[in-house]
Simulated assay, not measured.
Amino acid sequence: MTRPVIAYVTAPKGDLILSLLVGAVIRLSGGKPLRLREEPRSGERLFDGLILMGGLDIHPSRYDASIEIESRFDPERDGLEIGWLQHARDQDLPVLGICRGLQMLNIFYGGDLHQKLDPELTRDWPNGPLGYTLFRKPIQLTGQSFLSDVFAPYETVSVNSLHRRAVRTIAPGFHATACGERGGVQAIEADNAPLRLGVQFHPELLVYRADMRRLFRAFIKACA
């Protein structure tokens, strides 16, 4: 059987280690990876599914907001991802957004972001680089969804957390499918097919776990 082509977007320049990791995960999950470095130039179907990875913050102008907190932005990548999301929408292709990717998916379809997390949500989070990397938090799955099928029979899942921005208003046509223990959107899904899913954690960094491998396999199966 032909493997579905799964395209992915990281930073246009650099991100070599992340790119190699994601490519390996896609292969191990049954797909054929394709890294996208340039904006789409035609309407032809180039791949079967799209993954948007984590990275620098999205510029607030993309959701009609002014800068509240100084951060590192990547306008070139913002434009690249918007172009490929448009292509995926035109072609009715499944999309998986990871961390920043969830945020871009939400923005593209009309939602917006909190530029700073509620201190109440992060009061117990570590600050040091090692603690930040190893930190895990529980998220609660909400109702029947693609994500709940992947993680069944569990309704609570332990995930990492490498972000400092979050969904504020969920885009029209989407709904939350996971939330944090103290609130906050941790996953969104489109109300209707094709599958468009965003998670606020990094499953590619947890791929040693069977449940995270199931997530990638289930997504690639949906793209086949």
Rank of each mutant, 00 (worst) to 15 (best):
P4V: 07
A218C: 11
D78Y: 06
T177K: 01
Q115L: 04
Y132L: 12
F146Q: 07
G30S: 10
V159Y: 01
H175Q: 08
R168S: 07
D74T: 05
E81G: 05
E70A: 13
R168F: 03
D211T: 11
G128F: 04
P12I: 15
D92T: 09
E120V: 05
F47N: 01
V22I: 14
T133K: 13
S148E: 13
P4E: 10
R100M: 06
A7V: 04
G173V: 09
I17F: 07
D211K: 12
R45M: 11
I107E: 00
F216C: 11
D211W: 04
I67Q: 12
R62F: 02
V22M: 15
V22Y: 07
G97L: 03
S148C: 13
I58W: 02
Q91G: 02
G49R: 09
T122G: 05
G143F: 14
V157T: 04
L46D: 00
Y63H: 12
R45I: 10
G55L: 08
A218Y: 03
V25M: 10
L215E: 04
S161V: 11
R62H: 10
D211L: 06
A24T: 14
C179H: 13
M53Y: 02
V95W: 00
E39W: 01
V185G: 00
Y208W: 09
G55T: 04
K32G: 06
L147P: 00
R3S: 12
G30H: 08
P75I: 00
G30V: 11
L206V: 10
C223R: 05
Y109H: 15
D191A: 12
K32L: 12
L113Y: 03
Y154F: 14
L93T: 04
D211R: 14
L162M: 14
R214M: 03
L134Q: 15
E189G: 08
D149A: 12
E120C: 00
G184H: 03
M212Y: 14
G198E: 06
P172E: 11
M212W: 09
H175R: 15
Q144F: 06
V167E: 00
L50N: 05
D15K: 05
L56G: 01
W125R: 13
P94Q: 02
K13P: 00
F73I: 11
G180D: 10
I139D: 02
